[in-house]
Design a protein around this nucleic acid. Structure first.
Lengths: 93, 93
DNA sequence: TAAACTAGTTTATATTATAAACCAAATTTA
DNA sequence: TAAATTTGGTTTATAATATAAACTAGTTTA
């Protein structure tokens, strides 16, 4: 029997965001924008969903008078990601 | 930059079906039903989508007077699956 | 001072996955 | 033997999702 995939992580963009964050202390909104090539609106929404699940932390500040959104992964997020990786590998081999 | 994931394969059930078929000559509808635990309706629809993309072949016959749907992966399907695996690995490590 | 740009958020839409309802034929049960 | 149940699905309806388009608020440039 195939184990179900965590639906919160089985989304191209959310998985991409988590993938970026797993290997970085933190990432700025614009970094995610460039790495994923998704729209700003889509990123904004998916960040909120990840935050609601406590997979990431979002910090809103200013830099040179411009808004700056900085994102980082939480312990819960790391565990969920690692678990997703384990599960999807069952599908891939 | 993260490469986009083939949306036809980035679906839990369709990926599951392809995963089953990649290591089998063919599978019956009921086998997929048991392995994935998805509903019959959902399986029926996802099989059609995979067939439309020529990722699988569907054969409809009878066995002991009952309908029998047998599914197998195509060459095109194997290539698409292999490519998907390569791409998603970029997200997982 | 008007236009364009930065850094996002909110709203609307189109697609998707999924479940519920349905169907036909075969079989079992009362 | 008629009614109920089971098998093996398909079709239809709905809820969730991803995504893009439109919008906001402030800043810089011409």
């Amino acid at each position: 029997m195939l184990k179900p995939l965590n639906p919160l992580l089985h989304s191209q963009l959310r998985l991409g965001i988590m993938s970026i964050l797993i290997s970085l202390d933190s990432a700025e909104f614009n970094h995610i924008l460039k790495e994923t090539a998704a729209s700003k609106g889509n990123i904004s929404i998916q960040l909120k969903k990840l935050q609601k699940a406590k997979y990431i932390k979002i910090k809103k500040t200013f830099r040179n008078k411009y808004p700056l959104t900085t994102v980082s992964i939480t312990k819960v997020g790391i565990l969920a990601f690692e678990n997703y990786v384990k599960t999807i590998k069952q599908y891939l081999e």
